[in-house]
C-alpha cells in the first residue's frame, strides 16, 4: 500500500483541484444565467408517468407546501398546475406538445396524453394559458398533431380563437402542419378561417404552401384545402 501512497496523494490533489475548478466554474456560469430547474411535472409528462403529476399535486405535496402561501389545497393545486417555465409554458402545454415524425408513435402518445389533460384540468390547469409567444395548449396540440388531446381540450372549453404575437392561430398552425383532423375540429367549432397572420397569410395559404413543401403529405394538405 505504501508504494501507492504517492500516486493516491497526487490523485486526491487532482480530484480536489478538479472539484474546486468545476465549483468555481459552476458558480460563475450560474451567475451568468439563472436557470430554472425542470418542473418534475414536466418530467413526468415526458416520461408518460401520470403518477408523477399526482405526486406533485396530491395531499402529500400539499402537506409539505407553505400554508401561508397556499391557504387551501385548491389554491395550491391551481398555482402548481399553472407553474410556467422560463418560456412561459405550463405543464398542460407540455402535455399538448410532441415533436415526432412517425405517425404511429404520435397516435400512441396522443392516446396516453388524453388522461393527462383530464387530470391537469381537474386540478385547475388553465386551458387558455399563454406562453411568452402567446401560444395556448390548443395551439401546441395543433402544431404537434395530437388530435385526441386537441379534441379533449376543446371539449373541456379551450378557445380556438386568439393569436400569438405573429398572428398564428390554432387553425393556421394545424393547416401549416397538415393536421387534417384538427382543422376539421376547429372549423366545426366555428373558428374564423379568414383570419390572417401578420405576414398576411390565411390558413388556406399555409395549406397551399405545405402542399408544395411536403409532397409526402399531399393528401392531408389537399383535404385541408378542400375544408378551407
Amino acid at each position: 500500500m505504501k508504494q501507492y501512497s504517492a500516486v493516491i496523494k497526487d490523485g486526491l490533489i487532482l480530484l480536489a483541484v478538479s472539484t474546486l475548478f468545476v465549483t468555481v466554474c459552476g458558480q460563475f456560469f450560474k451567475s451568468l444565467k439563472k436557470s430554472v430547474a425542470t418542473d418534475p411535472m414536466v418530467t413526468s409528462v415526458i416520461q408518460g408517468k401520470i403518477q408523477g403529476l399526482d405526486a406533485a399535486l396530491g395531499d402529500k405535496a400539499y402537506s409539505e407546501a407553505d400554508k401561508k402561501e397556499f391557504a387551501t389545497k385548491e389554491l395550491f393545486q391551481k398555482t402548481r398546475a399553472n407553474k410556467q417555465d422560463e418560456f412561459g409554458r405550463t405543464p398542460l402545454m407540455w402535455v399538448a406538445y410532441a415533436n415526432l415524425l412517425d405517425a404511429k408513435e404520435v397516435g400512441e402518445l396522443d392516446k396516453k396524453r388524453v388522461a393527462f389533460v383530464e387530470f391537469m384540468t381537474k386540478n385547475g390547469a388553465d386551458l387558455n394559458a399563454r406562453d411568452k409567444d402567446g401560444w395556448t395548449p390548443l395551439m401546441w396540440a395543433s402544431w404537434s398533431g395530437l388530435n385526441l388531446v386537441a379534441t379533449k381540450l376543446v371539449e373541456l372549453g379551450a378557445s380556438g380563437e386568439g393569436a400569438d404575437r405573429q398572428g398564428n392561430t390554432a387553425l393556421t398552425l394545424a393547416a401549416q402542419k397538415g393536421q387534417t383532423e384538427i382543422v376539421k375540429l376547429l372549423l366545426g367549432k366555428g373558428v374564423d378561417k379568414a383570419f390572417a397572420t401578420k405576414s398576411g397569410k390565411k390558413a388556406a395559404d399555409f395549406a397551399r404552401e405545405g402542399l408544395s413543401q411536403y409532397p409526402d403529405k399531399a393528401a392531408q394538405y389537399q383535404a385541408i384545402m378542400g375544408l378551407l
Partner: peptide, 28 residues
Amino acid sequence: KPINGFVSGILVAGFSYEGIRAKIDSGN
C-alpha cells in the same frame, strides 16, 4: 471541457430548447 459543458448547457437552453421547432415554423 467543463467550461464547454457549462457553455453548451446555457446555449442549448437559450437557443435550442425543447419546442423551438414549433416556434421556428411559426416565425416567432
